[in-house]
Each structure stands twice: as C-alpha cells, then as structure tokens.
Simulated scan of single mutants.
Amino acid sequence: MSKLAVQLYTVREEAGKDFIGTLEKIAALGYEGVEFAGFFDIPANVLKNQLDRLGLTPVGSHTSIEQLVDHLDEVITYNKTIGNSNIVCPWSEVKDEESLELLVAQLKKVVQRLQDEDMILLYHNHDHEFKKIGENYLLDLLFEKCEGLYAEVDTYWVHHAGVDVIEYLMKYKDRVKLIHLKDGIGNELKAIGEGTAPVKQVMELMQKWPIEWVIVENDEPSPTGLKDIERSMICIKNQF
C-alpha cells in the first residue's frame, strides 16, 4: 500500500502564518510525507531538522517553470539539503504546438541537469493538457518528446477532462512516480470521499502498484486546509 503525503498548497493559509506548526499538525494527523509548494523563507538546514524531528519525508517540490529555467542551481541545492530528489513542474500554459515545443525545450535542459544530480523532473497535469493536437493529447506529446520526464498524475484533473483515470495511469505505468489524489464534483473541489471522482478505484490500484507515495491535495479546501486533510485522512483510513 502506498504511503500518504500532503501537497502543502492545500494548507497554504496556515503555512503562511506558522509553517513549522502546520507541519507538526500534518504529522499528528498521520501523514508520513509532504510535498512542497514553496518554503516560506525557512533555511534548508532548519527545515531538514524539523522534518527529521517530525518524521516527515519530503516527497516532492512543486517548482515553477520560471524557477526551473532561471534558478535551477538554487533549486537543486535547497532540495538536496532537505533530502528531496523529486522536482515537479506544477503548471504550464501549454495550449498548442508552438507552446509545446517551447516547453519541451525548457524541460529537456532541466531533465538533463537533474539527472546529473541523481534527481528527477516530473510534470503535474491539470485538465488543459488534454486538448488534442491531431490524435494525441498535449500531455502525451509532452511525454513523447521529452525523454526522462516523469509523471505526477493529478487524478482529479484527468477525470475532469473526461479521460478514464485508471486507463491513463496504466498507459504511463512506467513513468508515473507520484499520484495526486483529489476529489470533487464538477468544478467544486472536495475532501477525499466527498466528491464523485474515482478515488476508490485509484486507491485500489495503488494497493497493487509499487508507487511509494499518494499525495492528498485540495486547491480550494473548506473550511480550512487542515480541516480538509483531516477529513480526507479519516475517509482513507475508513474506506481504503
């Protein structure tokens, strides 16, 4: 069974006020890992010590394309210090062949540099990458053209795009390294178990796959990020 982590964007409001205190609460809820979406000006060695104290594993870091292109050395140094080897491009505005070629050119350079450091680059999808160019999704073309780029599949956005999540995961079985587990109804995001996304099927698949981390995320948590991930943890413990 995969272990559970939290994408810290879910608790960005709390983390902005008390980053370390928020990590403490996440650990207390039973999550074993965290995926970063910024570091709130905490020095890397300080964060490493706090993660060790709390028994939290850094499972990835969402890093903007601008940071990857313009500040990759700093990104590598910080993440190596905290013990994270998974760098994730969380978003791009890819929409057509021209923007795809630009993105591929940018990411290829990052992939190579990270490989030299025994790190990997992953791409986190939304739903707009499922626009088709000819017979292929933009996301498929990205993986086809960018060798060495791995997938962090956001299962909710695959579902929201009208694509079968399990089929898509199986298609990229060898390239999927991280999973985002997210729920919702239409455009309204929910805690795990409170929406209509195929979270049960995803978790059943994760019991068979050798994927180490499933990452819980909600871009629009209610009433707070911590309350949201608490409900998600209760659901996962009870149902999966």
Rank of each mutant, 00 (worst) to 15 (best):
S61V: 04
G225D: 03
V216K: 06
T63N: 08
W157N: 02
Y31R: 02
Q115L: 12
K132M: 12
E129A: 02
L138C: 00
E188F: 07
D70I: 04
F39D: 10
V34N: 03
A37D: 12
I215D: 03
L68T: 05
L226C: 05
F240H: 01
E14C: 09
Q112R: 15
K171V: 00
T22A: 11
Q67C: 10
I166D: 13
G134D: 12
Q112I: 15
I234L: 11
I26P: 01
V176L: 13
N45D: 13
Q7E: 12
E217C: 08
L8C: 11
E98R: 00
Q201D: 15
M119I: 09
V165M: 09
D52W: 06
V214S: 14
D154F: 02
L100K: 04
W91T: 06
A161H: 04
E212M: 12
N187D: 09
E212C: 12
E13P: 08
P58R: 01
P90M: 03
Q50W: 02
V46I: 07
E13L: 13
K190Q: 01
R175N: 15
Q7K: 10
E13C: 09
S64V: 14
V199A: 07
V111F: 04
G21I: 07
L107W: 05
E117T: 10
I185T: 10
M203V: 11
Q239Y: 11
V165W: 05
A44Q: 00
V59N: 01
F19A: 06
E32P: 01
Q239P: 08
N125R: 00
I166V: 09
R113H: 11
D183R: 08
G195A: 07
Y123L: 07
I192T: 02
